[in-house]
């Protein structure tokens, strides 16, 4: 629970007293403030179908097409060069989101969503791959948990504005 709270001295017992202004869940706070989900991955721990797998995980949390309308689609902005850069072209299903997607993006305070960044490391090189705009996802609890379960809890890092 994340709380906006006024904290003052309690004259009665000398301790502190709080008066809450607003209360939200961590998920809501994330949606408002997080802007990037970074995955720190090592080549040896990845399966051969890593790209498809990651796409399946991200899919339900993608920003719906109508949100993307004005932003246009962009391809992945690869910095180090990797096969992962192909995700965006192979898995485009605009407008075909499962119903749950709309609940993820349903509330008014959804924020702008998070870009997904894969920081990839192998014996001979390191690189960051920023997934394209069409892979902007809602940083819902379930997604973050799923990613952590999949790649390890310390491998998934959220960045805040």
């Amino acid at each position: 629970m994340v709380v906006e709270c006024a904290v003052s001295i309690d004259d009665y017992n000398g301790g502190m007293r709080g008066r809450g202004k607003s209360v939200m869940t961590l998920s809501q706070a994330r949606k408002r403030n997080a802007h990037r989900v970074a995955l720190n991955l090592e080549s040896e721990s990845l399966g051969s179908n890593f790209c498809e797998h990651l796409a399946r995980i991200l899919e339900p949390y993608r920003k719906p097409a109508e949100v993307l309308e004005v932003e246009g689609a962009a391809t992945a902005n690869g910095l180090g060069g990797s096969s992962a850069a192909g995700i965006s072209t192979r898995h485009q299903h605009p407008g075909q989101f499962p119903p749950s997607v709309h609940t993820v993006w349903g509330a008014a305070d959804e924020g702008e969503g998070c870009q997904v960044m894969v920081r990839y490391q192998r014996a001979d090189s390191i690189g960051c791959i920023m997934l394209g705009q069409e892979w902007i996802v809602s940083p819902a609890d379930d997604l973050i948990q799923r990613l952590r379960l999949e790649y390890g809890k310390d491998k998934v890092v959220l960045s805040y504005k």
Partner: peptide, 29 residues
């Protein structure tokens, strides 16, 4: 699991909470 992440949202852990003029963001279970 969320302490690191929460450090971006809140200024202080509850143990270090101090009275302030304006509202502050705190987090916990």
């Amino acid at each position: 699991e969320f302490l690191d992440e929460l450090s971006h949202i809140t200024k202080n852990r509850l143990v270090n909470l101090r009275p302030e003029r304006g509202p502050q963001t705190i987090a916990g279970v």
